[in-house]
């Protein structure tokens, strides 16, 4: 089974985004929430690209993922839990994966830095958390994020820069 390429993903995201948005809006009745659900569905499609058959059409699977995400959002809304968008994978649930090197001391420091970043990330605004997680944790390119968010690459770059600045400021505030 061949893994989905970036070009294939970009094509699917561009083609399916409008229909997914309509479906999400129908289920959630809130444009902002629907946009977050679509974004999360597409990010998950990318995250699980290795397990998907590229010979089969992506739209039925994408619709199922979106429906499940919308149901999660609705359940959270019933329980009056705050909406956290892509951060429905909250930073606390992100696991730290530091590649082991020959130097255990360096690995430990890297792990500590990752932990500090995870804590600071949780304090950022949802859009900043989302863009940083999409780019660094999920490994999406600037172009892919632009397709998912229906934005220009320049706007995504600008947002990433601001999010990094905010993250650095948060780390410095917590560790003066």
């Amino acid at each position: 089974m061949e893994a989905m390429s970036e070009e294939q993903f970009n094509e699917i995201a561009t083609r399916e985004r409008g229909q997914l948005m309509k479906s999400a809006l129908g289920m959630l009745g809130d444009e902002e929430l629907a946009a977050d659900a679509v974004q999360e569905a597409l990010v998950n499609l990318w995250l699980f690209r290795d397990r998907m058959d590229t010979n089969r059409p992506a739209s039925p699977l994408l619709s199922t993922i979106l429906r499940n995400i919308c149901l999660m959002y609705l359940r959270n809304r019933k329980r009056r839990q705050p909406h956290i968008g892509l951060e429905s994978i909250p930073p606390s649930q992100l696991h730290i994966a530091v590649t082991a090197s020959d130097n255990p001391q360096q690995d430990l420091e890297a792990r500590e830095r990752a932990e500090a970043v995870r804590q600071a990330l949780a304090r950022l605004s949802p859009p900043h958390q989302a863009v940083l997680q999409m780019h660094y944790s999920a490994g999406l390119s600037i172009q892919q994020i632009a397709n998912i968010r229906n934005a220009t690459t320049a706007a995504v770059k600008q947002m990433l820069l601001r999010a990094r600045t905010a993250l650095r400021a948060e780390i410095e505030r917590r560790n003066p």
């Binding site: 992100l94 696991h95 730290i96 530091v98 890297a110 990752a114 970043v117 660094y136």
Partner: peptide, 8 residues
């Protein structure tokens, strides 16, 4: 550090 944070 950001790249070390992996989604589930």
């Amino acid at each position: 550090a950001l790249r070390a944070l992996k989604a589930d």
